[in-house]
Amino acid sequence: MAGEQGKRVLVCEMDDKGSLAAYLGCPPLKFEPTEVSPNVSAMAMNTEDSLREYIRLFLRLPIIGSLTPLARIFDFVANAAPAVKEILAIGKLCYEVREQNYDMVIVDSEASGHFVAQVSAPDALATLVRIGIIADQTKWMSNLLHDPQVSTVLAVVTPEEMPVAETIELRQRLAKATPIDFGGVLMNRMPQAAVDETALAAARQDASLARTVQAGDWLVAQRSEAQLQVQRLAEAFELGNVETIAEAPADVALPQHITDHLVGELHRLSSSDA
């Protein structure tokens, strides 16, 4: 949608679930960004490819012959010292931002636990490594990530107990781990209000409508449970109003539905993001 406004956008999926490709209606994404619609490119993060690119770009080491031994070594390093994986993932994204290959890089991040580790990886590494290439590398990445004009975190949450609790915790953990800007929170999948209270009250007078009354009560309960969660979130974030998106009607494609609702929000973000 930002692409429709003439911005060059890169969308990146961090975990290899492949659902981004499904939403965008394109073949499975690769590390190499592919244009999925005018101005919009998409990629899937892969730390091994990121390492190759890193070696090529920054170390300017000639890579002769097969990379297999390197890949094997890398596998062990990455599993033993997990910081490597995280830094490679976040590093690739920061690189694209720094090189200004795109006006906006949107990251569909991993679940909240992994996300904190990824986004704070440059800070964590910087405390371990004080000199050398890595040290210089982490510095510019941290600078990009900490600059609220450049980077912001948008938390998307559904109106349920667990996700709301996790989001509240996410912000606390983020604040502890790294000074990245927390741009806002978006409540997705709000149940639609479909129950007319007067009608429901009238229906209670007729025993033959018992099932319908139950159905109505159920919808009302779902909705009020969701509202309770919105309220919890608003209180925790000290927001008067939490941006919400209604549950998608069955006949509308999901990205289109969300896009329709997001125009305003992204406008705001993109003005500070680019």
Partner: peptide, 13 residues
């Protein structure tokens, strides 16, 4: 009872 007609929407949902 025409007042309950509105509940059809809920049932459709």
């Amino acid at each position: 009872d025409s007042r309950v007609h509105a509940l059809a929407k809920a049932e459709h949902a």
